[in-house]
Design a protein around this nucleic acid. Structure first.
Length: 258
DNA sequence: ATGGTTGACGATCAA
């Protein structure tokens, strides 16, 4: 079995103690990180290598930043999402490890929707849609994990009415999400669990964590070959309750080894 | 209670 997880850590430097603790306790084989908020040179490489991980980083000062951690060597193939050479934001890294293609993705938030942030989000999702078509043509097992900043359905948020008009819940956002899924990808969490009320993010504000006012926006999307090997999935809520947490908590899936 | 969190940065923006 191979355990693959995704976690938006909201600053890898601020979250290092929690990250090290979670690597120790959960011991994922592969961990996809988002929102590093640092350049590659500032990434806490040694501390994570000491836990037994290989590391590939696409960093950026202050904002964004994604990484792949793996107990097995990582072959990096892409450090940006194809389709827009002018997009300099560090939101995509893709590689090959444990005989599986993996990507760590940080889809733009897109709010406020009346600014250019929303069309940037939509065009990023269109580029992802195009890239997924290319990936599918190779007939490989792949796992695309990350913070998609998409609440897929009503059952993925505590109060759907509050999200009307938000970039995470807009009709255009749902349309792009469905375009990607309908290419043949599996939302791994929904392959095993149909219940409402399972979340991966709780806002820092308004006591959202204590009230369980969350949303499910961190996803692990599987290619057909990977979905055939899906054994189990879960959301590990515990790190959200630790001291100085990220506002996101890790989401994981377990694939059978072949 | 004209507010509400957190992080990086630099005196504000982004989420």
């Amino acid at each position: 079995m191979i355990k693959i997880a995704t976690w938006n850590v909201n600053s890898v430097k601020a979250r290092l103690p929690l990250l090290l603790r979670w690597l120790e306790e959960f011991s994922p084989d592969v961990l996809l990180l988002q929102e590093l908020k640092c350049i590659e040179e500032a990434f806490p490489r040694e501390e994570i290598e000491d836990k037994g991980y290989n590391i590939a980083v696409k960093g950026q000062k202050t904002y964004n930043g994604v990484a792949i951690l793996s107990k097995s060597p990582i072959e990096i193939d892409l450090t940006e999402l194809p389709g827009d050479r002018e997009d300099l934001q560090a939101r995509y890294i893709e590689g090959f490890t444990f005989n599986v293609r993996v990507a760590s993705i940080y889809v733009p938030n897109g709010n406020p929707v009346e600014t250019d942030k929303f069309p940037y989000k939509i065009s990023f999702m269109e580029r992802l849609h195009n890239h997924v078509k290319t990936l599918l043509s190779h007939e490989e097992a792949f796992v695309l994990g990350g913070d998609y900043n998409v609440i897929p359905e009503e059952r993925d948020c505590y109060a759907p009415g509050n999200w009307e008009g938000d970039a995470l819940y807009r009709p255009e956002t749902h349309a792009e999400w469905r375009k990607i899924i309908y290419l043949g990808l599996t939302d791994s969490f929904r392959a095993k669990n149909q219940e409402e009320g399972h979340y991966s993010y709780w806002d820092y504000q308004g006591g959202a964590w204590n009230k369980d006012n969350g949303i499910r926006i961190d996803h692990l999307l599987l290619s057909p070959h990977a979905a055939d090997r899906l054994n189990d999935v879960g959301i590990d809520k515990s790190p959200r309750g630790w001291e100085r947490p990220s506002d996101h908590t890790p989401v994981w899936c377990e694939l059978e080894t072949n």
